[in-house]
Simulated assay, not measured.
Amino acid sequence: MRKDIHDYDLSRHNTFGIHATCRRYIEFSDEADLIGILASLTEADHPLFVVGGGSNILLTADYPGTVLHSAIRGIEPMPYPTSADDILVRVGSGEVWDDFVATAVSHGWYGAENLSFIPGEIGASAVQNIGAYGVEAKDIIYKVEAVEIATGSCITIPAANIGYAYRYSRFKDEWRGRYVVTHVTYRLHRRFTPHTAYGNIAAELQRLGIATPTAAQLRDVIISIRRDKLPDPAVEGNAGSFFMNPIISRAQYESLLATWPVMPHYDVDADRVKIPAGWLIEQCGWKGKSLGKAGVHSRQALVLVNRGGATGADIIHLSDTIRADVRTRFDIDIHPEVNIL
């Protein structure tokens, strides 16, 4: 049954736990339902915003329009047309992301295991190009199905046309506010190849005495690592990684090494490197510190937290102060990963 609620409290739809309302909240169950909803909306119902699990948004005020939320479910495997070693899996945009990863691993569909335990829903994976431990959603997305808001038309977009880059898609830029994602189809593999070089995965596997992990073992290790360093939103409100890791020129990185010889990095290409934003923030002394009711997590400086009763403005003030400190110390700009409303 469709949910259609006016003056709706969004506290349960943002993992920062910030109290804010929207003028109208509508949950849709399939494409036909969504098309009917879009056709019925009036000018008074605008603007529109699509929310998933709320794990990548920061609410700074009440939303003056309509919030749409997908309740489209289903995980449907299909043959890959040109390779028996691969499989396509079509997933409803309202499915919980980690439930999909767990299902994939249990069925022997591989490629998503490094993305285990990322909060949020399937639709957001295609919009945000979520990533962790050396893997991004773009590596496994095959196509995205969506409804165009202005026309109600159903469209299918191949992944190659979405312009994916680090934490980026055209949905976040030129297509912002144009489409509502209904399904995402992933290309996964029947043969498992572990990716363990990123972060401290290899060290944790070695500690456990696992030389050649199964997909389930790799998933368990990643979940354990994430649980250890990331706070539970139910206990301390947060949106996971608040900042994107900055990409700088290799020349700037080599210049910084004169002052910071242990600065970590990951090669992007011959001319660019990625610097962990959490390391930069920690060097500025922010790890575990607070500004009022907003703070930096004590075990992972990349995560900003709601200490209790923080507003969106409190989180923004902390973010701006940290960004200014990083810019002053390193001449590097770091940018929020979260969507700020």
Results as ranks from 00 to 15, higher is better:
85 D>I: 06
149 I>S: 02
88 L>N: 00
189 H>C: 12
73 R>D: 11
312 G>Y: 01
281 I>R: 06
31 E>R: 03
250 R>M: 10
263 M>H: 08
79 P>K: 01
275 I>H: 01
259 T>F: 10
17 G>M: 08
168 Y>N: 12
223 I>T: 15
146 A>S: 01
27 E>P: 13
278 G>P: 12
78 M>N: 07
306 N>T: 09
299 R>E: 09
266 Y>D: 07
341 L>Y: 13
157 I>L: 15
79 P>D: 05
180 V>G: 02
311 T>N: 05
9 D>L: 14
3 K>T: 13
237 G>H: 07
295 G>H: 02
169 S>G: 10
71 A>L: 14
318 L>A: 06
46 H>I: 08
244 M>K: 15
207 R>F: 09
228 D>F: 15
178 R>H: 07
227 R>I: 03
148 E>M: 01
304 L>A: 02
205 L>S: 08
320 D>W: 06
9 D>W: 06
209 G>K: 11
96 V>L: 13
78 M>R: 14
220 D>M: 07
129 N>W: 11
224 S>I: 01
89 V>S: 03
134 G>S: 00
123 G>Q: 04
165 A>P: 14
212 T>V: 15
30 D>I: 04
214 T>Q: 02
171 F>K: 00
263 M>R: 05
62 D>G: 08
215 A>H: 01
178 R>Q: 10
29 S>P: 10
107 H>R: 15
46 H>D: 00
32 A>Y: 11
144 V>W: 07
244 M>S: 14
99 D>H: 11
297 H>L: 06
171 F>I: 01
326 V>C: 04
332 I>F: 10
235 V>C: 12
162 I>N: 02
33 D>N: 12
250 R>V: 12
53 G>C: 00
144 V>E: 03
172 K>H: 08
13 H>W: 13
309 G>V: 11
124 A>Q: 02
273 V>D: 02
85 D>C: 08
91 V>G: 01
227 R>K: 15
89 V>R: 02
29 S>N: 13
242 F>K: 03
170 R>M: 08
38 L>W: 00
20 A>D: 00
128 Q>P: 06
63 Y>F: 15
184 V>A: 01
232 D>G: 05
82 T>I: 09
6 H>T: 14
217 Q>T: 07
188 L>S: 04
242 F>T: 04
256 L>S: 07
297 H>S: 03
314 D>N: 11
33 D>R: 02
92 G>N: 07
90 R>V: 06
339 N>H: 14
32 A>R: 13
221 V>G: 01
170 R>W: 04
304 L>G: 05
201 I>S: 06
295 G>T: 03
28 F>I: 01
155 I>C: 05
14 N>I: 11
120 G>I: 00
223 I>N: 08
284 C>G: 08
187 R>M: 08
338 V>D: 03
24 R>Q: 11
340 I>E: 09
64 P>K: 07
145 E>D: 12
311 T>D: 04
218 L>N: 10
143 K>F: 14
58 L>I: 08
209 G>F: 13
59 L>Y: 04
210 I>E: 10
69 H>L: 10
135 V>F: 05
212 T>I: 15
335 H>F: 13
207 R>S: 14
309 G>P: 00
34 L>Y: 09
94 G>P: 06
18 I>D: 02
340 I>P: 06
289 K>Y: 00
185 T>C: 11
